[in-house]
Amino acid sequence: MIEVEGLTKSFGGLTAIDNVYLKFKKRELSSIIGPNGAGKTTLFNLITGHLSPDQGKIIFNGRDITNLPPHEISRVGIGRSFQRQNIFPRLSTFENIQIALFSAKHINGKLFSQAKNMLRDETDEILESVGLTDKKLMQAGYLAYGDQKRLEIGIALAIEPQLLLLDEPTAGMSPRETIEITKLIKKLVKKRGLTLIFIEHDMDIVFGISEKVKVMHQGRIIFEGTPKQVKANAEVQKIYLGKDKK
């Protein structure tokens, strides 16, 4: 599905990503864990074209997508969410999803047709699946924090990705919301047959959703395995779990 080969990126002498090799299989649910500054978000930014790597390649479905601009990477089927700033705050919840759909269906260049009722059913379906149907006319910026996170997942789904990258989807949420969002993600990903990679701090979620866990530390992958193996690994415990227990 997606392969990362020898990816390296440094910022002014500081190596953020250091010769990383990764492979993700189709429909696999993986998570990337690691302490702050381990390079997780940088890795995402490299994959989605927000940054370009110093060295290495990114292969998606057999195609080299290294150095493609973000909008093209999005078009090959990679959707992502961000830690912050994920939505279009002064547009309605409905429009947030609808505009993403316009892009996915290649009709956002249409100048002379009225957007209002276009793709209404498709938009409603996504709103339904993330549980925002009753808030669809609200201005997205006024949604509760948890709902904004749902909307953000909705936007990511609207571009019909094969691979979904989620950057800390539950950061800052209450425990109850966290459980709900976790269930939602798992359900949606399974239903749509997506490949999922997510960055997470919360170990319950990591072990709850993921089939594979990759542990990053100082820009390197130091361990890969199933959640069970990760729990059992002493080095991971020492570097990460021991220090940053929530």
């Binding site: 989605t48 927000h50 601009p69 973000p70 909008h71 093209e72 999005s74 078009r75 959707g79 992502r80 961000f82 700033q85 994920n86 939505i87 279009f88 705050p89 505009i99 993403a100 892009s103 996915a104 936007i155 609207a158 571009i159």
Partner: peptide, 9 residues
């Protein structure tokens, strides 16, 4: 949100 717009393609 220009950055987000870029990432919807």
């Amino acid at each position: 949100n220009p950055v987000r717009t870029e990432f919807i393609g």
